[in-house]
Design a protein around this nucleic acid. Structure first.
Lengths: 242, 242
DNA sequence: TAGTCATTGTATCAATTAGTTACAATACAA
DNA sequence: TTGTATTGTAACTAATTGATACAATGACTA
């Protein structure tokens, strides 16, 4: 299947899209004590946005979210979780749409599909940004990770969507068992703690973190780390979940 | 504003509805150790459903939810909370729609608005069912409370929507401070505990519940209850929240 | 090669929270 | 007046969390 739409005639093609419903994805990336968010920058504009798109007539919402993420960023097999529907009547505006498409050489007619009111369903995910290299689609000239502490102004209500996604991520970190796919096969307790601290945006007491995690019986302790950084070599752990 | 739509010509009128998006409300009712759910029964059918409806072009999602609840059940000023968007492509079916409308003497043409695919945004609320008397709209011949333990089969995916709403309600009981509008002005600790037990569907230890609630500093203790049930008269409490 | 020192694993103690049991006070029923 | 079920609270225990201490480690340096 094509990663991007075949031509600029896409919007007028006979692929049927659900009217008035869109999906926006907040993809968080973790690595090395950094938490980032994946943003598209639309071609020939200064407009940043969460990767989003529209739903085909013959796919479920969740399927659409996966496809949209792949089409717009190249990322595949990412587990997405729905978190909220954004439906304020003035959450989008025509001027921005014209700007976005003009940058791509497309002029929108007044009755264009895009210019209708849309309710957007938000999905989020958390992945290792060092293992995933996103690539922009035909509408964007970049698709890159941005530090959460320096997120640029986003189009429409995307900053609000991002904040709600971040809130949901932080409050579901335990039950979602962050780390399963974010840490290397074998990792140290320190790396594990870094992950938590980075997501939560706060320091945790080392001793208590270790005790807590070991008490959950989700970790298998391996042999000592041989390769030396400075100082005492820590144990390596891997996940051990029934 | 009219509580119900003016005529059967509504669907063809010039009131503009958002295409493909609906709202369904799971209204939980509490009183006297009972937890119920509000259901509509469509006229001249055996079809039960959560009260739901469609969104006007000029209203926000949340506003639409409020209006829809009022139009379909007569209930006003209910605080609604969004909880999930249901978007499986086959979640509805044409046969049921024809049955629902036939019961109201309406024949749906094949291209009717209702027969399109819809994504439904779920909202829930929890109120005192003894203080709220719902009334059916023109499409329903009853709008009544059903015990959660004996919910009939509902149309489409409404049973699934109800289950997800119940799950959300139970997991947000503490932060939502259940009881604010569910208990009388003055209430006993026992009544308060009953509320919790009924919502959670499990027994709680009396002593611990009392200690926990008093430690939250949200209750003001009043004088003794004079009117006697049997045995020791309990204190009365009221909420005291800054 | 011995000493330094930051990091790691774990123990300890205090503080908080939760679960269990007990009991005196109450107020109606008989 | 006595019996009894309920209520408010205390007492005790167990479990969880927070804070601090310390010995073990192992690369580094001097």
């Amino acid at each position: 299947m094509n990663r991007t739409h075949d031509s600029k005639g896409y919007w007028d093609s006979n692929i049927k899209l659900l009217p008035g419903i869109s999906i926006d994805c907040a993809i968080f990336g973790f690595n090395d004590s950094q938490l980032k968010i994946l943003l598209l920058k639309y071609k020939n504009t200064d407009c940043f946005a969460l990767p989003g798109g529209f739903i085909n007539e013959d796919e479920n919402l969740g399927e659409a979210a996966e496809r949209i993420l792949t089409e717009r960023t190249g990322l595949k097999n990412i587990y997405l979780e729905q978190f909220y529907a954004f439906g304020d009547k003035d959450r989008r505006n025509d001027a921005t749409h014209h700007k976005l498409m003009a940058g791509n050489g497309i002029e929108l007619k007044p009755d264009h599909y895009l210019l209708n009111r849309f309710v957007s369903i938000g999905y989020y995910a958390l992945i290792d940004f060092s293992k995933a290299t996103p690539t922009p689609d035909q509408y964007a000239d970049s698709c890159e990770w941005y530090d959460l502490h320096s997120v640029p102004a986003l189009i429409f209500d995307h900053n609000e969507i991002l904040q709600k996604a971040l809130y949901t991520l932080r409050h579901s970190i335990d039950e979602k068992l962050a780390g399963l796919n974010l840490l290397p096969e074998k990792f140290t307790m320190n790396e594990f703690q870094n992950l938590y601290e980075t997501i939560l945006g706060e320091k945790l007491a080392r001793s208590n973190f270790q005790r807590k995690m070991l008490s959950l019986n989700i970790l298998k302790r391996l042999d000592k780390k041989i390769t030396g950084g400075a100082h005492k070599a820590p144990y390596l752990y891997s996940f051990d979940i029934k």
